[in-house]
Design a protein around this nucleic acid. Structure first.
Lengths: 238, 238
DNA sequence: GAGTGGTCTAGACCACAAC
DNA sequence: TTGTGGTCTAGACCACTCC
């Protein structure tokens, strides 16, 4: 049995996404919802908090909750969401090409990024993402073998995250990301269809497990014309 | 009197940022904190939720809350945080140059972005941000005059957000942002020290008030070598 | 004055981790 | 078995909006 507040949250999301409640509609009041779902107001508020965080509604004190949802879609900015998950929401056909997969002694910079002591080996995976037949993204992943003892080309071609979460039972929890623009490296020129572009957009991520251990460092290198990042942000007055 | 949970949140943030609780320390349990602050556990949990959202701690079921904070700093990515706020956290000297300020009939694209009917005028503000003597960022802001009737060069040179929030009493609430890479425009070439770069990173934002009305559209155009965006992301399993 | 969302309480039971 | 965080409840009072 799923938690009440999550069940209610999903039902409300559904009503918004199916336009049962179109944009700028007022939701029923918290008391009404509590009665309707036969629960307490605090539980309803927990569901509404999720709607607020995910950009579906805006609460207005003394008035109520307004639907503000718009089309929402992210372009592949990997790190905490798997490429397979993103690809499933995209229109264009996508393909993954595994270029490199090895357990090796890492370069010094990676050693530092993965916070690993010298001489420890790491998994290095290099993959190209092809979108509509063009090689757009170069993903370089490094895994701490303490958490990821084995990897195969089959896994890398499908979804490493699927494998980690469902086969190994790892619980991925949070990531620290950084987006910068860099000069293309040799590997970028070799593997990507750069079309003369003299920059690539790079998303660098450190990914952590539920117990706060760092297990992955990733660089996702994008051709700039195909890069797009969307965000919903709230102004905080803490 | 500030709300209890915010007061407690700030006190906990302070303990983390001053290294009273360094990284990977275990916080006192929720029950201990509730006793210590003479409050209920739910109130403590509200404070801890804020710490989680802002990347200070990670909660582990059955164990406790671990400090995960690292140095946190954002490079000027304007839209929902004012440049003045960002500048105050930066090391380098910054300067704002107002290049244009006028109430005018907007181009068609801006009309659309601001969701304004034809023939309505908008405030257009063009400003250059100089960092360590280099012209790095070009900010183009458009305001709906229904919410922002007056603007002056003095306000634009200092902080428009200060003026909106403290003088006009506007309550800025949320924004939808998009980050893309574009070719430099004529204005970019004219106003910025592009140093031969053939791309600019553009952050486009629509900014909304508490009552969900759209009042501002902004393009913040950055020289790519000085652009940097950092993010803390959680993996959601909703 | 009636209705809304914001805060806070004092309990309860649960799933999970550690011993 | 004990202690932790996760969920849920039924109430209370407040600040705010609207009529």
């Amino acid at each position: 049995m799923m938690q009440k507040y999550l069940t209610i949250y999903h039902e409300l999301v559904n009503r918004i996404e199916t336009d049962y409640w179109p944009e700028s509609t007022m939701l029923p009041s918290e008391n009404e919802l509590a009665t309707k779902y036969d629960t307490s107001r605090e539980t309803i508020r927990k569901s509404l908090d999720l709607l607020v965080q995910n950009g579906y509604i805006q609460k207005i004190r003394g008035k109520g909750s307004v639907v503000i949802s718009k089309a929402k879609f992210n372009f592949p900015v990997s790190g905490i969401v798997s490429f397979k998950e993103l690809a499933s929401e995209m229109q264009e056909p996508v393909k993954t090409l595994v270029k490199e997969l090895a357990l090796m002694e890492p370069e010094e910079s990676v050693q530092k990024d993965l916070e690993i002591s010298a001489k420890e080996k790491v998994w290095k995976v290099v993959r190209v993402r092809e979108i509509s037949g063009e090689k757009i993204i170069l993903d370089k992943d490094y895994f701490n073998p303490h958490y990821v003892p084995d990897l195969t080309t089959e896994i890398a071609a499908d979804s490493i995250y699927d494998y980690l979460e469902h086969e190994l039972g790892l619980k991925i929890s949070f990531a620290r990301k950084e987006i910068v623009v860099e000069q293309p490296t040799e590997a970028d020129r070799k593997y990507l269809d750069l079309n003369g572009f003299s920059n690539v957009v790079v998303i660098k991520s450190k990914v952590y497990l539920e117990d706060t251990s760092l297990f992955q460092y990733t660089e996702s290198r994008h051709r700039p014309d195909k890069f797009r990042f969307v965000e919903f942000a709230r102004r905080v007055h803490n």
